[in-house]
Amino acid sequence: MSAGPVGARARVALVLVSHSQRLAQGAVELSAQMAPGVLLLAAGGTDDGGLGTSYDRVSAAIEEALQAADGAVVLADLGSAVMTVESVLDMEDGFDGRVRLADAPFVEGAVAAAVTAHGGGDVAEVLASAEHAGGTFAVGAETPGAAEGPGTTDGEPAADGGTRAVVTLRNPLGLHARPAAVLARLVAGFDASVAIDGVNGASVLELMKLGAAGGQELTVTGEGPEAADAVRAVVEAVEGGFGEV
């Protein structure tokens, strides 16, 4: 079910830094479910396992990440976790620019970054994905492009020569986290820009925010060199029911 570069590991690893060891571990677990090919490292708690952040744990996790990947994106939960990460980056002179700290909500940013890393994104792309999560996770936030969905007629080829299809969600739970991640990874693997009900098909958070339920119709549009293949793949994945039917 991986849609990332086949046989290749992700280029970017994630380091999740929390005051709580269990929170960091939980965020790793959640992100791993959506992006199994990405190296995710938890650096939570103090050296003795209490609440706080440990300089040594953070720097060890970053070093481990850099041994396995080209770069690393770090997410941190509260003020002093951010400061600890900044201190590590300061002391190591930013690891030659291979490591970036995201200004992003911890959980949403981690999930979005993990899916982008799984799709083969570089450090800048993974960082942008995490930071964009801050604008999309709040319920009721404006979604770019959402307005273009209604108004077009089913089955009509898009005016600009792109591809368009309508498909019905078959799995009862609809587009929840795991299927959203499957679609986002799938879309990221094509040289095409795909929108599902008007939102960016490569963004797991935007897909989840659609709140699409089982039985609901989705409009899939694509542009770019591989648009037709991408739209077909999305339709097949949705019709396949994500292994839940």
């Binding site: 103090t46 050296d47 209490g50 609440l51 706080g52 952040t53 440990s54 300089y55 040594d56 003020g79 002093s80 400061m83 600890t84 900044e86 201190s87 300061d90 002391m91």
Partner: peptide, 15 residues
């Protein structure tokens, strides 16, 4: 201090 304090004062005083 950076590696042993844990709270915000570690990175602050450390820096």
């Amino acid at each position: 201090l950076m590696s042993s304090v844990g709270g915000a004062s570690g990175p602050l005083y450390g820096t």
